[in-house]
Design a binder for these strands. Structure first.
Lengths: 339, 339
DNA sequence: CTGAAAGCGCTTACAG
DNA sequence: CTGAAAGCGCTTACAG
């Protein structure tokens, strides 16, 4: 009835050799240790037969490595993060790592708790879309030499590798595009985690508006747990500011909520109001009219993040010396029917 | 320079007491072991000061438990699974568990590998949306007493707890609805993992068609890695079968691809063709015209899955006796403008 | 009330 | 070429 999994000891006993030898063979050090091919064969055969699986905990305890990478995003059910997570998952498995994940829901305490969990679990590295306020905790982990790569949001020029998208420029291009199309009163509905003056997407918008001598209409919205709240807020903005002829949404879920608001008010896009959203997704592409977007290079973001992390993981000495760098990727404006 | 995390031994030495006592206190067994409040206070204070975190690997090695739950879905970037994952993640953390996840991409080998990984890692339990072909492997794990809950797809009446949705009935209602609206040639575009005769959604469709003496048009599509393939397939179906006046898509991504196909062919919904899709999402709700759907009770699915698993986890003796049960939840037909 | 000790399964320096 | 032994950090039966 004992269904205990076979240990390295069981193997050794069965074959009447020491577990050292078994361990060497199973870890591919047979050559290095010049163990006879015959013995190697015997051990491997027996391991297969018994269905031997090394206990990761024992190994982790001994080596201090776990082959687990912690992935922390704002919300795994947000298509942007879900897509990134999928690609990361894929690449990471190819390299023998596993992913353990969590959603911060933009709650700093939650984020901190998870960071703690990552530490306790002994993850080898972390990929984090941080919330404001996690700065100190992350810095502390980095200081301890834990490989960490940030993405989506960044902190000041702290010593953490970060993969970003050029939000300012992306937003600038969106505004410029609307201006070129002849829209006069272009609003920006933006999530403001931090102060609006510090949000790159808002900064990009303001710069374009100033450069082209237009009037600025910024509507910063706080982060909300429920989607319907956004719909209502945007409906209100739209109905209270009739002269707006174009509106930009700073994230995909704001864009989705915005579309719903526009529909509820029975406004026609782009006749009554032109629409551009940050982030692309199925809805924007298939919607009638199709929605113009500032698309983030999802694939590239994911790949850059992973490559950066793997490089750090593989090279623990260099990682301490190498200065942290921020890699900034470009967005692309995809013009469709809504603008 | 030694940044090693403090161990229970460090604590014990520092306070000049045995690590047994420290362990008892830190595990809340102080009362039970009748350790003096004074000592408890001292230990807790010191633990806090040193920032003590128990090493999960040592603990896992010792206790055989890991507080990790493995979550396996078809594709984490699919909104259906992403939403479920999010809710599961949430509930599970509340109970002190962590989630480690992976996407099978409907590849049995991949699924098997991950199952293996779950075992090796020593997860306490698994939540799996299985692919065909994982049957034996899952049965083996269940036989070993590993708590497992399946969802989304099921196997014959094997001894594994499963949370399902009443796919037959959901599809039946969709067909019935279209018939009542007066549509005559109602097609079903369905994913067929298994033989079409064994797919519940197809069975439900056929039953309704037979009951109402209509003509059956089933187009089974194999699982594909790329989305564009579906769009093309559906375009082809639509243009080769002009007499179809209504079409049902059996999953959300088929529905999305279907919409794109309909758009490309410049067909008007519902005038040229009525559309109903399985699974609800933002796109279907916001699309113009809004798409009627057979919605799965996502929240309820996630909750039932988790509750079932937690019950098994908490009660390891009973779990062996309790017969495996399949819980079937109802879908709801949401009629919108497309039908 | 508290502690010494064994042992979970592994890896690895050391010895031969 | 191969093995005996220490030790990673924890929990827990056992002893007092």
């Amino acid at each position: 009835m004992q269904k205990r999994k076979p240990s390295i000891n069981d193997l050794a006993k069965k074959l009447k050799i020491s577990k050292t030898t078994v361990s060497f063979i199973l870890n591919g050090k047979a050559k290095e240790k010049r163990i006879s091919d015959e013995l190697v064969g015997k051990v491997q055969k027996e391991a297969l037969k018994l269905g031997y699986q090394p206990n990761q905990f024992a190994r982790g305890l001994r080596t201090g490595r776990t082959s687990i990478i912690g992935l922390m995003v704002e919300d795994i059910s947000n298509p942007f993060f879900a897509s990134i997570a999928k690609i990361i998952e894929d690449k990471v498995y190819l390299n023998g790592y596993k992913i353990i994940y969590c959603s911060t829901e933009n709650d700093t305490n939650r984020g901190r708790e998870f960071l703690n969990m990552f530490t306790t679990l002994g993850v080898d590295g972390c990929i984090i879309a941080p919330t404001m306020g996690m700065e100190t905790d992350i810095a502390a982990m980095v200081a301890k030499g834990k490989p960490i790569v940030l993405f989506d949001r960044k902190f000041g020029n702290k010593g953490t590798d970060t993969v970003m998208v050029d939000n300012k420029q992306g937003m600038y291009k969106a505004v410029e595009h609307l201006i070129e199309r002849g829209f006069k009163n272009i609003a920006l509905v933006a999530l403001a985690f931090d102060k609006p003056e510090k949000e790159d997407r808002i900064i990009g918008y303001r710069k374009a508006i100033t450069d082209y001598k237009m009037v600025s209409y910024v509507y910063p919205l706080p982060f909300k747990a429920n989607y319907q709240g956004y719909v209502e807020d945007i409906q209100k903005i739209l109905s209270e500011n009739k002269k707006l002829d174009a509106i930009i949404f700073s994230t995909n879920y704001l864009g989705v909520a915005g579309l719903e608001a526009v529909n509820k008010l029975n406004l026609k896009i782009p006749k009554d109001i032109a629409v551009v959203s940050f982030d692309d997704n199925d809805l924007f592409r298939i919607n009638k009219p199709a929605i113009s977007v500032v698309a983030q290079p999802i694939e590239e973001i994911a790949k850059t993040v992973i490559d950066t992390l793997l490089a750090k993981l593989q090279n623990s000495t260099a990682r301490k010396k190498a200065a942290a760098k921020t890699i900034t990727l470009s967005t692309s404006l995809i013009v469709r029917e809504s603008s």
